[in-house]
Design a protein around this nucleic acid. Sequence first.
RNA 1: GGGCCUGUAGCUCAGUUGGCUAGAGCGCAGUCCUGAUAAGACUGAGGUCCCCCGUUCGAGCCGGGGCAGGCCCA
Length: 1096
Amino acid sequence: MVAPTRVDYPQLEEGVQRWWDEHDILNRYLHRNDGSEKRWSFIDGPMTANNPMGVHHAWGRTYKDLWQRFNTMRGYRQRYQNGWDCQGLHVEVEVEKDLGFRNKHDIEAYGVGAFVEKCKERVLHFADVATHQSIRLGEWMDWSDSYYTMSNENNYTIWGFLKKCWQEGWIYKGHDVMPWCPRCGTGISDMEINEGRKKVTHTSVYVRFPLVGRLHEYLLVWTTTPWTLPANVAAAVNPALTYAKVEQDGNVYYLSSDVVPKLKKLRGREHGEAKVVATLPGSELLGWRYTGPYDELPAWNNTHTEHRVVAWDEVSAAEGTGIVHIAPGCGREDYGLAKEDDLAILAPVDENGVYVDGYDWLTGMQVADVARPIFDDLKEKRLFYQTESYEHVYPHCWRCKTELIFRLVEEWFIAMGSLDAPGDNPRKRLVRIVEDPAMTWIPGFGRERELDWLRNMEDWMISKKRYWGLALPIFVCPKCDAFEVIGSEDELRERAVAGWEEFAGHTPHRPWVDAVKIRCAACGEVASRIPDVGNPWLDAGIVPFSTLHYRHNRAYWRDWFPADFITESFPGQFRNWFYSLLVMAAVLEDTAPFKTVLGHATLIDEFGEEFHKSKGNSIPFDEAAAVVGADTMRWLYAGAAPEQNLRFPRIPTESEAAELRAVGQPPRLNEKWMEARAALDKLWNVYSFFVTYANIDDFDPTTRALPVSERTDLDRWVLSELQETMLMVEAGLVTFNAQRGAGAISAFVENLSNWYVRRSRRRFWKSEEDADKVAAYLTLYECLVTLAKLLAPFTPFLAESLYQNLVRSVDMAAPESVHLCDWPVADSALISPQLRDETALVLRLVNLGRAAREKAQIRVRQPLAVLYARVHTDAERESLTRLGEQVLEELNVKRLELLPLESDMLRYTLQPRMHVLGPKHGKLLPKVLAALRSGDMQAKARTLADTGRLPLDVEGQEVVLTPDEVEVEASAQEGYTATEERGYVVALDTTITPALLAEGLARDLTRLVQDVRKRAGLAVEDTIDTWLLTDAELAEVARTHSAYIKDETLTRELTVTALDANGQTGVSVPPAEGYTEVVPAAKLGGHEVVVTVRKR
RNA sequence: GGGCCUGUAGCUCAGUUGGCUAGAGCGCAGUCCUGAUAAGACUGAGGUCCCCCGUUCGAGCCGGGGCAGGCCCA
């Protein structure tokens, strides 16, 4: 067995990984439970294979691996399948960047087929990169069996899903207004829009709309996007706002009352004085007709409708005129309003932002170029009022910085239906599934979040006008406009009337699948697939079907569906993965796709910022692993509260780490990391301690045995704690609470290190090998081996290292790896509540004793004669007669005396127990308390102690209190060196006799020699000869206590030489080859001493 | 505007069904202990438990109303 005192985690992990690889441990782990009756189904949410993995991905992956490992050790058969998310715009964007493309034309010119192949290549590359990074994390998956959402099976299973939706009548073609880059010719998603907002100044314009039937009366409207005026169909007012009727230059304007002052500023030279002649509520304007600014255009004339004033609650007077120009084809809110109020919709521009036919002189012009011509045109038509510079934050394309426009596009949707509607629909199914308490959400608020989304979400827009993605299997007939959905590759082949040969042998992607034509079932015309690709969440949502062979092996699917467990980062997933999983399971089987979902919050950097590639603060996982180690990160993640954002501490830079490595040191981490890893470091210390002495003693645990019943209280206590820890870790993990599990392990390591090992050190370093020593070895060994197994799911590398060194080095019959071991099961017979309580009592008294020493300013090395203790119960007094020795040893006191009740060191106070008295006395309670607290407390305490009852006079009535209602608490009388806590009192006799003083000096001296030994570079077990040169007084002490000093310092021969009053020595001269230190007088109670040690 | 969550020590957070003098870790100051320890122990400084109102003998906790922050949806 070998264990350095300091551990270099990254180095250790590299070694363990190499060993795993050499011994094919992963494979044996994957097949360990092949024959098991029990199965546990985990489904991996696919990670985007578009970039290397950052440390923020490792949080969730730690959870995934942790529960798989835990359940493997518990004997559950599993699939261990990892997944990669492959299709979508984010991949296209990266490939476009790589190729230097700027827009869709570049892609078309390059060739869609070649471009799609590039996307595939990129995905395969980064799946490979992330696989290696995940292995570095210690994540154990069947890496040869990862699923890819771009696979044929995944895509065709979605086709089946879409066909089912279509058969139910839930697929439809709809329209939506979305942000659009006229240069790139593509829609911009909500995620993308957030990256491109910029502050800009536009020339806004005030326009007057002439009211029909009210001569010279106008609505005054305002817009920052003049190019949308030709698409105007309505004007919106807030019915709750007050509007003013203003007279100016012989005309009448309507606008929000709040804006009137602004009008005076605006009027400029062209307009005269404005006068408010009346006010009226917005509701009165509703339904008024007006003449639109571009009614002369054919596009408007084709609508066969009129412009009118409509109501919109969102209209405010904060900007503009309180009357909003509505162009439903050019604005999201406008479009929403149009649907509500059944307004006409004009879509004036094409995908390049150019006016389409029907807009007369505008047709063929770019939106970016029309502001000035439109102002001129309005002036000519006498509709122009004024322009105004307006600064605001406006969305831009995050790739090419072009200002976005809002544009009506045709998209495909899955209808969600309404909860109020009659009959069946997806929304009803989804809500029912998520409301079912059989589904567990951790943290619990997740369910409400998801339900909120499900109740309020719009229909699911599944189409995107791009290239790399699911080919939506929707075929539209050019003649009769009927559409149908093809549900599988077989169906496509059967229906194909053209292009099949061209497609055969390709993946179902653009452009190859586009070649296939079918015959319209309704009219017999040849129909083509729509060019759109699918929303990538379809790809991820189908996974519980596609990867479980839903189409071809229903028995297998039934075996693994639904998932027992999924875990992902909460933010976003409510409307992404969780949502798509739910929709697909609801549509296909009307059932839940998973039983338990664990969500975690966001990993943030040391400054509280989210990790983001574009911010430049992303930390590649393997870089961090090389410095802090994978186990350290895993421990940080496992110990974190999943519902709270987790701060990732700063890691040393490459150069800092390299500097230390150059001198053979592991990278030094900051306090935050040290704190996060404290339990692991502490465990390593204990382990290193054990190995040190086991080596010295040549201790072999396989050849020794000693029944637990024959071991000491201390041993049985720590074994009891160990069993309880096992129960707690298991209880935590079974309920998907890793924090609880990690916390239990940390707490145990703390107890093991700070009490068990601290109290047991002497048992290990004493020279004779008796039953007590064997007991100590066996007990500590048991603790360490069990900890290795408990830690295996959390920190697989460290656990393996401990296990190999502790177990495999002595027992070749044991499982070859800790990850092939069974999960340790607690032996409840070893749990002793009595020992737990007794040890807690000892610890309490020790702490009180240390505090008392602090108060008396007497260091622990100075022995004292008597410690007085006051405890509560007879049982506690009895315990102390057995365990008092531990208290005395720890506190360096000779004798323990229990204080009698009547001791004059104590005084008593009466503590009312509110939760008993409160319900009993209610409103009378304040008076009862007053009566209790008045008068002689000591006498009352005595009465209660003697008679078991305490009568009180409360407003002439007798109220009797009993011991379970009032607690008698002892505290120390003033003037004693005593400390107390909740009625436990510890007092010290601070008299230091000359004998005690000498003994204290001897201990100081011993400690000094130990320090010298250490600095001399001696090994722990080296025996030495020691020379001391000092004054007569200390020399005398050293001679008196020589046996003690020799024993403690492994000194065989101790030579003490006293200086006489003149500083002259006697005879003995220390050898020149020894190691000598002069210890100044200040360090040893005023005695200077020269210490020499020499290895024998 | 709607939903969910959060507000307690300098920082990060606990705080059980309402009950005595509100806790922990880190950090800070001091003392101690240590041949396992980059460890540990003790003491100290540090709080309007976001604010207001209510219920109650009693509110950090329950109810109402605000304020501030986060996430999501409009």
